[in-house]
Design a protein around this nucleic acid. Structure first.
Length: 704
DNA sequence: ACGGTTTACACC
DNA sequence: TGGTGTAAA
């Protein structure tokens, strides 16, 4: 519940812009013959014509509604055009809509702070722009007002027989209050923006303009499609007086129902009878105050500057009889979901230079057979590793951890076979804690690169696979090493056996899906390559560091390592036998990365199949029981052994004060700051300790 | 046994 | 904190 700032003198200019039946418009643009037609977007044509998720206004006239089935829609509107949502990997693929939404956001963010509220809605804070307009070129001085602006609806304005003229008059009154004038400026700006959206994207939208988000949102829905509505201060009380409580954002659910049932509040106006204390008594301090303010049209919630989503998710439901009954089928679907997620993470990285740090798995399950069937399947999360195969692996581990918890201690080992009584009715994976790569991250990499220029390139041979993991997440590649044990060969063999079982199960369960090629999760069919694309770095950042290189280089060459580091390295190298020195290896990857970066606007880093690298879960349980190898296989950046000794673990497991300040001080100032920047948002996972072995190895005193 | 799929956020 | 619940589109 947003906290209401007590700020009754709110003269901000806030707009809420809402795309009209957005998915339909996206399809109409793609297929212009659909324009002006009754149309709807459906997903999963399979059952009863699929479910409608967006309906054109033409179709709404026939009584077609969202939440109808395709078949129903055809009954009430035989002419309706049903367009299917794109499908990829056996599930709805919303990317075309996301991309279209981005187009719109780009345009709408031109005139002020812009908050992407959903795939098809934004809030704008136009206060500054409106004030500027009022100062320089107020509406009252304009001889013409845009056609789109005079089509506005002004709540509380009596428009009579000539609405345009009356609105024009309202917008240009010289005797209006400052608030109303600001709102008028907002209306002109929004009208202009909406026109730009139409010209540049062919999409129409509706908007509300008010003094806060709550009222702007309310207004944007009042005159659709392709219109805008203003909420002058003087209209607020009358507007809310009769407004059904459930129409208010945040009150459409249980809280609104409680208000109705428990307090007999049916309109927002009814709320006015209750003192703030009374509301707090019922609903707590925050919600109580929020309700009290809401009743008065007061909302201090700020428009946040956010153009991009804070998380990415990919999920699917498996209702009723379609519930997943085997780990194998769960693994198959997780694989699909993870591939989509990974793809989107790659896009985000390329387009926005952002990295997600947390992977979360959600599932819904039912236990047909059992006592405590009310228990919910627990969500689990862990640090996110940027590689499709790793994401799959980790998601499966999280699932298995969740499943064990869900089933309780007595879970029979069911490696891929028909289980005892559970079914998975929903699966989703999501990536969160997305942070922009600090501008300096590119510079720190430049720094490393320059570091390497003193080293000759060494031809790679068989270790290539390991070394060419993507150099992206600092926790994964530059600083952090290990933390994600790879599997040893015995287990790999075991896994191959399990793959066969997996195949068998899948064939049994989802025949039609299995016909798709590349669908099974056998090693042979996994993609043998992944591509990573990054833009080139800003060139200007690193020259000023040049003077500091010699120092760094010296440290590196003379580094003999700190005890813990050496221990791990020895362990690792003895296991890996014929690896090159860490130094060479790290240099190889890093320099490759930057060579490519330097070469042009776009680079591609290929890294080979992961099937022979990463395997299965490292969690306790069926897999976890196996002796685990301490595999610091990758990310041995070898820049400086002393640095490495400090940053052996994945970045998320550090405390700032655990790091030897002397070592840190060896680094240039900017780098020190960046190290802090990396460590700050990242905290130790306390859910699934996939890195117990390694952590224990390095931190006997602090970690258990 | 569900419109399905995503996102955000408050709470503890 | 991460995990859960609520709300919305």
């Amino acid at each position: 519940m947003p906290v209401a700032r007590p700020e009754s003198s709110d003269s901000r200019v806030i707009a809420h812009v809402d795309m009209d039946c957005f998915y339909v418009q996206v399809e109409q643009r793609k297929q212009p013959s659909l324009r002006g037609q009754p149309a709807a977007v459906v997903q999963y044509n399979s059952w009863q014509g699929g479910g409608l998720i967006a309906v054109s206004y033409e179709a709404r006239k026939f009584g077609v509604k969202r939440s109808m089935r395709g078949d129903e829609a055809k009954q009430v509107c035989p002419e309706i055009h049903l367009v299917q949502v794109p499908v990829a990997r056996g599930k709805a693929d919303l990317n075309s809509y996301r991309n279209a939404g981005s187009e719109v956001v780009t345009i709408l963010s031109r005139r002020g702070r812009c908050e992407r509220a959903s795939i098809d809605e934004v809030y704008l804070d136009l206060t500054i722009a409106a004030e500027a307009m009022l100062a320089d070129n107020p509406p009252e001085c304009l001889e013409t007002i845009s056609e789109e602006a005079v089509k506005s609806h002004v709540l509380g304005l009596e428009v009579g027989t000539n609405p345009r003229e009356n609105v024009r008059h309202w917008l240009t009154r010289s005797d209006a209050s400052r608030r109303d004038k600001l709102l008028a400026c907002g209306a002109l700006i929004v009208a202009e923006l909406r026109l730009q959206v139409l010209e540049e994207t062919e999409f129409t939208c509706s908007a509300g303009i008010a003094h806060n988000k709550m009222l702007a949102k309310l207004a944007s829905g009042m005159n659709k499609p392709a219109q805008q509505t203003l909420v002058p201060f003087s209209s607020i009380s009358k507007l809310l007086e009769t407004l059904p409580i459930k129409k208010m954002k945040q009150l459409g659910g249980k809280l609104g129902t409680s208000l109705q049932i428990d307090l007999g509040v049916n309109t927002v106006g009814d709320l006015l009878q209750f003192s703030e204390e009374k509301l707090q008594e019922y609903y707590g301090l925050n919600t109580g105050s929020w309700l009290w303010n809401t009743a008065r049209g007061i909302s201090g919630e700020e428009v946040k500057e956010r153009l991009l989503p804070n998380s990415h998710g990919s999920g699917k439901t498996f209702p009723g009889p379609r519930a997943l009954k085997t780990v194998a089928s769960v693994e198959k679907w997780l694989s699909e979901l993870c591939e989509e997620l990974s793809e989107r993470l790659q896009s985000d990285l390329e387009q926005n230079k952002r990295i997600a740090h947390t992977l979360t798995l959600h599932a819904q399950a039912h236990k047909s057979n059992d006592a405590d069937s009310f228990k919910k399947f627990p969500s689990k999360s862990c640090p996110l590793r940027y590689e499709t195969a790793k994401i799959k692996e980790d998601a499966l581990s999280l699932f298995q951890a969740g499943l064990r918890e869900y089933l309780g201690q007595y879970n029979v080992k069911t490696s891929g076979n028909k289980n005892c009584g559970w079914g998975i009715t929903g699966l989703s994976v999501s990536a969160s804690k997305i942070v922009a790569i600090p501008s300096g991250t590119r510079s720190i990499m430049n720094y490393f690169q320059n570091q390497e220029e003193t080293y000759p390139q060494v031809k790679l041979s068989s270790e290539k696979l390991i070394q060419d993991a993507p150099l992206l997440s600092p926790s994964e590649n530059c600083l952090g090493c290990g933390g994600h044990p790879t599997l040893q060969s015995t287990e790999q063999l075991a896994r191959h056996e399990e793959d066969k079982e997996t195949k068998r199960c899948i064939e049994e369960e989802d025949k039609e899906m299995c016909k798709e090629k590349g669908f099974l999760l056998s090693p042979e069919q996994l993609p043998d390559k992944e591509t990573l694309i990054c833009s080139s770095p800003d060139a200007e950042v690193y020259p000023k560091w040049e003077k500091e290189y010699p120092r760094w280089e010296k440290d590196q060459t003379e580094s003999s390592g700190v005890s813990l580091t050496e221990k791990s390295r020895d362990t690792f190298e003895s296991e890996e036998g014929k690896r090159k020195s860490n130094k060479e290896k790290g240099m190889q990857t890093i320099s490759r990365y930057f060579q490519s970066q330097n070469s042009g606007s776009l680079i591609q880093i290929e890294h080979a199949s992961t099937t022979n690298l990463s395997e299965s879960s490292s969690l306790s349980g069926p897999h976890g029981e196996q002796p685990q190898e301490n595999s610091l296989t990758r990310g041995e950046s070898s820049v400086d052994a002393r640095l490495c000794s400090q940053f052996k673990r994945p970045a998320w497991s550090y405390d700032i004060d655990e790091i030897d300040q002397d070592v840190l001080k060896e680094l240039p100032k900017q780098i020190q700051e960046e190290v802090h920047a990396w460590l700050r948002p990242q905290k130790r996972s306390n859910t699934v300790k996939r890195d117990l072995g390694i952590t224990r190895y390095f931190l006997p005193s602090k970690d258990k």
